[in-house]
Design a binder for these strands. Structure first.
Lengths: 131, 131
DNA sequence: CCGAATCCCTTGCGATACTG
DNA sequence: CAGTATCGCAAGGGATTCGG
């Protein structure tokens, strides 16, 4: 990976090539549709497995398990098991997870703000290419 | 998709369930490893196809083409073809693309800031699970 | 109720070869 | 130089079943 030109025009110019792999990992997490949804759900407070599955709607329990494990592994989500029958497991954001919400929501805000432009660009592009 | 509980505690509470699919599309773009790298490269100025391929390093020309097309379709990148031989094509960020850099870099900054915590969390998690 | 394990199909993506 | 086309593997992810 030669990304020597990557920083530059950045305000504080803090992006260096050596950090790119690590940054990419975080971006991959954010790019994961389900992970972001889970984080947003948990930003509203602690939730149980079934609650998440039901409220997200459309996710398989398999993917929910996998995503939660990944988020837990990265220290973004905390998993608490209550040794009762039937089992009860609660998921909550950690401080790290909450801090991630800030830039993620900034991105969400950008998306909402520029949705119209993007869709217009797509329509124009598609119109040009289908002739 | 029932995401009725998704907004809530948000500062300005501007996230609504109806907007989620659109937001997800943007997040998917950002999650795409190559797209973000391309955007960062172009934030340093206009570049040619081969320059991007060489400087990014590790991307196949197939993926580069596909990603650039996607970015162009979304109005983030502008493609300029010079009708000369040999062919010359330049890529540059649009205003929309440049505005996207802001929240993306914010995320990058977050990633850099918290890399150590994430790696520590992973190490701790892996240590606990492999016993 | 929470989650692990298996099956199986679809998709992503790299490698390679070919055009204008 | 800047793509397009085809192939083939490997990962992603849904459905289902079993276990604690």
């Amino acid at each position: 990976m030669s990304l020597s030109t990557l920083d530059v025009t950045t305000p504080q110019a803090i992006m260096h090539s050596a950090d790119c792999p690590k940054v990419s990992q975080v971006l991959a997490r954010v790019g994961d549709k389900w992970s972001v949804l889970i984080i947003m759900m948990l930003s509203n407070g602690t939730r149980r497995f079934s609650d998440l599955k039901r409220d997200i709607g459309g996710i398989s329990q398999r993917m929910l398990t996998i995503c939660l494990r990944g988020l837990e592994r990265d220290g973004l989500v905390e998993r608490t098991v209550y040794p009762v029958v039937p089992p009860k497991v609660e998921y909550a954001l950690t401080d790290l997870g909450r801090s991630l919400c800030v830039p993620v929501k900034a991105l969400g805000t950008w998306a909402l703000t520029h949705t119209a432009e993007i869709e217009a660009a797509r329509a124009a592009f598609d119109a040009k290419t289908e002739d």
